[in-house]
Design a protein around this nucleic acid. Sequence first.
DNA 1: TTTTTGACGATTC
DNA 2: AGAATCGCCAAAA
Length: 126
Amino acid sequence: MGDKDFFERVWEVVRAIPPGRVTTYGAIARYLGSPRAARLVGYALNASHSAYPPVPAHRVVNRLGYLTGKFHFPSPTTMQERLESEGIQVQHDRIQHFEAHFWDPVAHLPWPEVFFSRSCTEQPPL
DNA sequence: TTTTTGACGATTC
DNA sequence: AGAATCGCCAAAA
C-alpha cells in the first residue's frame, strides 16, 4: 500500500471527512497506525495548502474541539466560517456539540490497507 | 547525517 | 482544576 508518504495519507483521510463532520489530529494518527503522531498530522495539514485535490483541513480540530489551526488559514476567521457554512456552530474557537459532529476514521473508513489501495480494477493481486 | 520543527495529547505539578 | 512540561516522529533544512 505504501507508495504514499505519511503526509499524503493524512490528506487522503481528511478528504474523506464528510461535510458537516469533524475529526481530530489524534484520531487520524490512530487510524494511520501511529497513535503518537498527532503532531505530525498537524504538520501534514500545514503542508496541505497547495495539495490537489483540495484538503478540507478546517474539518480537523484538536481533541477538545478547539480550532487550534485557525491561524494557518487565509484569514484567522476562515476556518470558523467554513465550519459554520457546513452547519457547525463555533463559539470562542470551540465547536459546539463536538461529540455529535465527531467523525472517527477508525470507525467509518475501511482498513487502511484497503483504503489506500488503488481501485481494484487496476490493482493486480500481488 | 544530524538538527530543528511543530495546526497534539498525556502526564505532572 | 488549570498551567507547565514531556514524548512523540516524519519532513525539511
